[in-house]
Amino acid sequence: MDHTVVIPPDAQLAPLLRAYDRAVAAKHRQFFIGLAFMAGAFALACIGAEIDPGLFWEKLGNFTSYFNRLAHLDTGAVVLSDPAEWFWGLRRWTRLLGETLLMAYVGTVTGAVLAFCGCFLCSRNLVSSALLRIVIRRIFEICRTVPDIVFAMIFVAAFGLGALPGVMAIAIHTTGALGKLFSEVVENIDMKPVEGIAASGGSWVSQVRFGAVPQVLSNFASYAVLRFEINVRGAAVLGFVGAGGIGEELIVAIRKFFYSDVSAILVMIVVCVMLIDTLSEKLRHRLLAMDERP
């Protein structure tokens, strides 16, 4: 078969290829500079984090044996052989898991309500006072940058052990996280309805209530549900610092080497989180579908 592409003589081809190589070389140079930078950062980080591959290799056996122990009861039997013994604390753990879910719920609702109130006040298209906007934005930023567990530690010192500091920590973190997302949604709304309400004599609250809220509600709800999902995961570990929920039970089991308890609690947390993930995904799809024109 004949070549359909006629290969031109070298004199003609070489400059073309050279031009291409030159153009690509610049990209390659950039890539290698980036790679060198990454390698440097990697080496620096290895020193910083006291990485010891030898240790890792040596201890890798521990990892498998750890999971092996997680899979066995104190009696030496495999956990699945005696589920009743494995989940001996089912009642108590279920209660604690329920407590964790409630903490996440109350924290999410409180945070979502606060974020809802604040987000309209820090949106450029609804509020003209730059001072008010900046103040609210800064508050949101601090609320979401400080990790919830740090808030929880401080609140435990103030409110004592229990669910209260955990709920407050979740609420504050949620306010910051949702406040940012909410205000982004509000800044992207169509302003024509708001103007329509203003033109017929509606007050600022009415403009927000009838012009803005109907446009953002389903988006807000979807974000809040997603946040609840994240908060359930977060609430499960708040007990590590004494802020209620199942975390306290888990950390005690880990510290005291009650291996089968650890695996039982972990299984419960994982199943619960996965269940909520699935439900929340369905719910969010439905919420966002409401937004589309039927």
Partner: peptide
């Protein structure tokens, strides 16, 4: 504003 009602080119209704 109540006394001078406004009608807009793009209607400016609240679609939802």
């Amino acid at each position: 504003r109540r006394r001078c009602a406004m009608i807009f080119q793009q209607f400016n209704l609240v679609g939802r």
